[in-house]
Simulated assay, not measured.
Amino acid sequence: MKDAMGDAPMRKIIHVDMDAFFASVEQRDDPALKGRPVAVGHASPRGVVAAASYEARRFGVRSAMPSSTALRKCPELLFVRPRFDVYRDVSRQIRNIFAGYTDLIEPLSLDEAYLDVTANWRGLPSATATAEEIRANIRAETGLTASAGISFNKFLAKLGSDQNKPDGQFVITPARAEAFIAALDIGRFHGVGPRTVARMHALGIFTGADLRGQSLALLQEQFGKSGAWYHGIARGRDDRPVSPDRVRKSSGSETTFAADLVDPLAIFDATARQADEVWEWCCKAGLYGRTVTVKVKYADFRLVTRSRTLSAAIEDHAALLRVSRELMSQLFPLRKPIRLLGVTMSNFNEPPSAEPRQLTFALE
Rank of each mutant, 00 (worst) to 15 (best):
V197E: 05
I150F: 06
A140H: 09
D263Y: 10
R240V: 01
N96G: 10
R176A: 14
D316E: 12
S307C: 01
A198I: 09
M1A: 14
E26W: 08
L159E: 00
S253Q: 09
L156M: 13
K34C: 11
R62V: 04
I150D: 00
T102C: 02
L77N: 04
T309G: 00
P351A: 10
I172M: 07
A56T: 04
E106V: 09
Q274A: 14
I172G: 00
L108N: 13
S44W: 12
V323A: 03
K295A: 08
S151A: 15
A272K: 15
D210H: 11
S243V: 10
I181V: 14
A131N: 02
G227V: 05
V49D: 02
L33W: 04
D89C: 06
G187C: 05
G224I: 00
I314K: 08
A319Y: 05
L341R: 04
M1S: 13
Y87R: 03
L331F: 15
S67H: 08
G236V: 03
G204S: 04
A217E: 14
A228S: 09
A312E: 13
L303C: 05
N96Q: 13
F206T: 07
P264D: 13
V40E: 02
S151D: 06
D263C: 12
T128P: 00
R308D: 02
M65P: 05
S307L: 03
V294A: 08
T130L: 03
C283L: 11
R302H: 10
A272M: 11
P241F: 09
I138S: 07
V262Y: 15
G168C: 05
Q214M: 15
R46S: 09
I172Y: 06
I134A: 06
R139K: 15
V278Y: 10
I233T: 11
G227M: 04
G100E: 15
G60Q: 00
V294I: 11
L334F: 12
R58P: 00
L108R: 01
P82R: 08
A70G: 07
G252L: 01
K34S: 08
H317C: 09
S243L: 14
S151C: 04
D238T: 02
Y101E: 01
P107V: 07
F361W: 10
A177M: 05
V117W: 13
E254A: 13
E132W: 11
P45I: 01
F84T: 05
L124V: 12
T69H: 12
G204N: 02
R195L: 09
L211C: 06
